[in-house]
Amino acid sequence: MLNYIKSLYKFIRRLSGDDLYDLYLMSHKQCSKKHKLMTKKEFYQATLDKKWSGIKRCC
């Protein structure tokens, strides 16, 4: 039951984008050390700029 709640929480975090920075840190550790690591704030801003540069919401 506890595992079920944990995985549900993990799913909701992923769906809402709550864990995006954690994912970025993991990804940065694994494959792109040549790029400068963005701070949380820089990453958040970059994510928003990317997200809202095109048609993201429909009628």
């Binding site: 975090r13 809402s16 984008g17 995006l20 920075y21 949380k40 704030k41 958040y44 801003q45 994510t47």
Partner: peptide
Amino acid sequence: RSIRTGRVL
């Protein structure tokens, strides 16, 4: 942005 950055939930 400034208080709890990126904590969407």
